[in-house]
Write a protein that binds this DNA or RNA. Sequence first.
DNA 1: CCCTCCGCGATTTGATCATATTATGGCGCC
DNA 2: GGCGCCATAATATGATCAAATCGCGGAGGG
Lengths: 217, 217
Amino acid sequence: MLSSLNNPPAHEIVYRQIRDKILFGDLTPGQAVTIQGLVAECGVSMTPVREAIRRLTAEGALEFQGNRRVCVPRMTEARFAELTFARDMIEPKLAEMAAEKATVQDIDALRGIDDALNAAIDLGDVKGYMRENHRFHFYLYALADSNILLPITETLWLRFGPLYRIISGKYGTESLIDRHDEAIHALRAGNAALCAEAIRADIAQGFAIVRENFGWT
Amino acid sequence: MLSSLNNPPAHEIVYRQIRDKILFGDLTPGQAVTIQGLVAECGVSMTPVREAIRRLTAEGALEFQGNRRVCVPRMTEARFAELTFARDMIEPKLAEMAAEKATVQDIDALRGIDDALNAAIDLGDVKGYMRENHRFHFYLYALADSNILLPITETLWLRFGPLYRIISGKYGTESLIDRHDEAIHALRAGNAALCAEAIRADIAQGFAIVRENFGWT
DNA sequence: CCCTCCGCGATTTGATCATATTATGGCGCC
DNA sequence: GGCGCCATAATATGATCAAATCGCGGAGGG
């Protein structure tokens, strides 16, 4: 009955494995992802691997490389412009919707995640920072109870994953500042618009770092 | 070399088949989609069908119904609100980007599609209207040369498909008006902002029809 | 004489299928 | 009305076929 929670199917496991690797920068842009490589790596048969790859391709986390071959997509300035446009439109909206439903327990949980995030920054733990930052945003967004915008946002973050790795490898964690405190204060005040603005500013800072790094206007 | 164009793989064929059925309202919301049903219908084995279903599920065109069962998603007022928000944000942007790249040949092609669309309306051909309307919008959007916003828009239209069928079954084609002429004139004038506004107004009219029909504010 | 380019074949990789296995949902029985 | 059996459908595997890539060898030109 709860097997879907206790025993996730093989294709789900493979999916999450590759997904997390992309999301947290373990795979570099342009890197080829082969079926048989994953078969050997995950110890499952081809069918679940194929399903995971199809799913990731549909989400934009992987890209067809012409002749039935897939790889981690490369970032271009044009794509980056579209990504920032979409994130700037959608994520503040999700934050606003979330703010209208957040309970005190939710806000405390977000506070806890942000504490862990700051601890990771102090330790210089780039991957820990990335994980906690992801957790913070998606814990918040999940409160919006969205069936449309939330999955879209997940695909947008998947496209960002490979970038963050490159950036954080150059800069380290000392330059990582965020607007999470402002978002949490807005949530406590019950001010949805202010929360949306805080998130907008938060992600805009991330965009600026990427732009600066690549020399994109 | 061109086998990917001449001989699309089986999973691609199955994918397009189900996709078009959803997009043009041949499947009703809540209808179950089974692997074995598609195996029998398409005359292929289970593996390609599984891949097509995974892909469609990732795109939001199908929905997990809990215990490893998928169905056509049902529309709710909350989902509709999110869909209209996303389309209102993205599609005018795509139209604007497209307007900056459209050639005279492109505009003529759009003119031709719109003529076919109007002919379908005059004939009371609901499905023909839906196909040509889809063609018009996505011919335009494809000009934007977008790798991010265009796939997202395709998923949004997939969520709309089942709705249009219900609506058009009630109203017929006589109430179908559009702003395609305005968009084409804006393209000829090279006015990207005006083209974006025309598209915004065009899709807003569609939203209004759905809202009125379901009594959604 | 050496360097380059073209073509061919071996090997790797992807696509599809048939089949075994497992879990779920329905139905009858107690 | 609850519980266990059975039919059905989904999951996963390994085998088989097809296609593309990579490497090597030879021919031609500089």
